[in-house]
């Protein structure tokens, strides 16, 4: 198992180097002149030029790149042009907000999609099978910002069940002392039940939005893989040996059927990272997605680079976790390492 992890980590190194190079080039190729944006609309040509020199933008690309790598090796992601704040600190502050939202969204969608897919597969042609088909079709065709807006309209504006979609906490509350950065967990650590409920209330709608978005691929994969496993030889022989249908479906079929679902999770998660950006915008969520959008609009490339790099690292980390999970379930993987 240790071998497997080490191997996957080493494999991730070239892709991370690739990401660093590509984001660097991509941000330089962005339309718009950061120096002009920074100097403001009233600035003279000389003033813009002065700023360009100050930012090092007059240097050849290769020099800029070497400097960027040098900074990166100290964990320095540069500073935002608009706020002057160091990007690394800003990302560190905002990352838990995004992570909490995305993970909860994934959890919500798995809690619905996996049982739905299993029931649809074990009772083909039943009502629940049709429900599964409707949900997966609807989930694919609804744009994520649209779901978000509908949820806000119904549950906040019409019914008043949800709080205003304005960030992680109602203004009457102050955040819990930071341990994990996840408000749900930190408020529990602090033993503050009211705070837990308050942050959960803020989380429900955006998490549901993300959940609905990722429902379809997970439900579809669970159903398909469960159907395949249920008609396989070993399920037939498990039945023939008289094991209870619970053991057959859960212990024998389900665990095997989860393997392709776990693989799908990696892909779903990368979709979620993208959808997150829009959802954070709709719900005024102070995460790294909304941070990146603002920076992108301002041609502020240090935050954009920082954002993309963070995402890449998260993606690599998640795939590593998936590989480990896979290895824990499937003995054949462990041997391969």
């Amino acid at each position: 198992m240790g071998n497997l992890i080490l191997k996957r980590l080493l494999l991730a190194v070239p892709s991370l180097i690739g990401v660093v190079i590509v984001t660097f080039l991509l941000t330089r190729a962005l339309p718009g002149d950061p120096a002009a944006y920074f100097a403001g609309p009233a600035a003279t040509a000389e003033a813009v030029e002065e700023i360009r020199v100050k930012l090092g933008l007059d240097q050849p690309l290769i020099v800029q790149f070497v400097r960027y790598i040098g900074d990166l090796s100290h964990g320095d992601l540069g500073s935002s042009l608009t706020t002057g704040q160091p990007v690394a600190a800003e990302i560190k502050r905002r990352l838990p907000a995004s992570a909490e939202l995305t993970l909860l969204g994934l959890l919500v969608s798995m809690a619905i999609a996996v049982p739905l897919g299993i029931l649809a597969a074990t009772q083909p042609g039943s009502l629940i099978d049709h429900a599964c088909r409707v949900v997966t079709t609807a989930g694919v065709s609804l744009p994520v910002f649209f779901t978000g807006l509908i949820l806000i309209y119904v549950f906040y504006y019409k019914l008043g069940w949800a709080p205003a979609p304005l960030g992680r906490l109602d203004i009457f509350f102050s955040p819990p002392p930071q341990v994990t950065g996840f408000y749900l967990i930190d408020s529990l650590i602090a033993g503050n039940g009211a705070l837990f409920v308050a942050s959960l209330k803020q989380l429900i709608l955006p998490a549901l939005t993300l959940g609905i978005f990722s429902l379809a691929p997970i439900a579809r994969m669970t159903r398909a893989s469960m159907l395949a496993v249920l008609s396989s030889d070993f399920v037939r022989s498990a039945r023939a040996s008289g094991l209870s249908s619970f053991t057959v479906v859960v212990t024998y079929a389900f665990r095997n059927a989860m393997l392709p679902v776990i693989t799908t999770l990696g892909m779903v998660f990368s979709f979620l990272l993208g959808a997150n950006v829009l959802v954070e915008k709709v719900f005024a969520w102070p995460g790294i997605g909304s941070f990146a959008v603002e920076a992108l609009i301002a041609s502020d490339f240090a935050p954009v680079q920082g954002f993309v790099l963070t995402m890449a690292i998260m993606y690599v980390a998640l795939n590593l976790i998936i590989d480990i999970l896979y290895g824990l379930i499937d003995p054949r993987m462990r041997l391969e390492a």
């Binding site: 037939r236 022989s237 023939a240 040996s241 008289g242 095997n256 379930i329 054949r332």
Partner: peptide, 22 residues
């Protein structure tokens, strides 16, 4: 399901596929 495996049992061709792989 009481009788299967207790009174009447079965073995299959392709034994490796007939066993739970994990």
């Amino acid at each position: 399901s009481e009788v299967r495996g207790r009174e009447i049992a079965m073995i299959f061709q392709n034994p490796r596929a007939a066993l739970n792989p994990i």
